[in-house]
């Protein structure tokens, strides 16, 4: 039985890896270009992209740092704020549900719409354009991360097992005790559901908000600059960097989830 599961695990990793390797070989040998009708100018081969990554490692890292700062601060601040909103909504359920409905309306605003607006609203924040751009970008990421956290955490707080709640009530537990001992632990898996949406979302929000920022820095902005200047090889280099940022943050999240929620499933 255990052997079978190990085999399953192995194949579930092996197949995507084989697919990836075959894909890269097709790409490098330009068979892929023939298949989708692209040329090596708009879709350069991997070795060229990797060459650019190596040549400009220090510069690229500077942009990565700027993007990561925005994504991480926005993610953490937005998630904490969302969790806090969910607590309030749970404590005052009468209008909490309505409030969260409005909050989810915020989620429907596209990033490209709020980024320029927040840019204008934060003009007075600081004299240093880098700082005020940073604030504007972080706010965009925050708005994107707040909503998924508040809605999911609220579900975690409220959708407790009825018999657990009844049991605690039968012990004459106070509301506070129920909250601390039942609701908060119950919300943890939901927090991770929210983060699974927010983590990739925060990277995307950071990349897009960089397009509009006053201070020119970040992976997103470099993708735009290079595409407009028809420098597709460089653009692809930054696109692959953006992918690596998103994927590695997601892997970190999965690892954290594995450790924190061990034995709960």
């Amino acid at each position: 039985m255990k052997k079978l599961r190990d085999k399953e695990k192995l194949t579930s990793i092996l197949y995507p890896v084989i697919f990836g390797v075959v894909f890269c070989i097709l790409w490098q040998t330009e068979v892929l270009h023939l298949l989708i009708g692209a040329d090596t100018f708009t879709l350069p081969v991997p070795t060229r992209i990797i060459g650019i990554l190596i040549d400009n490692f220090a510069v690229i890292m500077g942009h990565v740092k700027a993007t990561l700062t925005v994504a991480l601060i926005g993610l953490v601040a937005g998630s904490i704020f969302g969790y806090f909103l969910a607590i309030i909504a749970t404590l005052f359920p009468k209008w909490g549900v309505g409030g969260l409905t409005i909050a989810s309306a915020f989620n429907a605003i596209p990033i490209i719409a709020i980024a320029p607006i927040l840019n204008n609203l934060t003009k007075d924040v600081s004299k240093d354009p880098n700082t005020r751009s940073m604030v504007a970008k972080i706010l965009v990421v925050m708005i994107c991360c707040t909503v998924s956290m508040s809605i999911n955490a609220f579900r975690g707080f409220t959708e407790v097992k009825p018999f657990s709640e009844d049991l605690l009530k039968s012990y004459a537990a106070s509301k506070k005790t129920i909250f601390m001992k039942l609701r908060i632990p119950n919300s943890l898996p939901y927090v991770f559901i929210a983060l699974r949406i927010s983590v990739p979302g925060s990277v995307i929000a950071a990349l897009v908000s960089e397009y509009f920022a006053e201070f020119i820095i970040g992976v997103g902005r470099m993708i735009r600059e290079n595409i407009v200047l028809a420098q597709y090889a460089s653009a692809w280099a930054y696109i692959s960097v953006a992918c690596v940022i998103g994927i590695s943050m997601y892997i970190l999240l999965l690892a954290a989830e594995g450790i924190l929620l061990k034995g709960r499933k």
Partner: peptide, 23 residues
């Protein structure tokens, strides 16, 4: 209705507060 208004106001207030916090 009052609940919706109140929570919207609260959301706005906290959003702006967090903005200056981030700075």
């Amino acid at each position: 209705v009052t609940a919706i208004f109140l929570s919207a106001a609260l959301l706005m207030a906290t959003l702006t507060a967090c903005g200056s916090e981030a700075e």
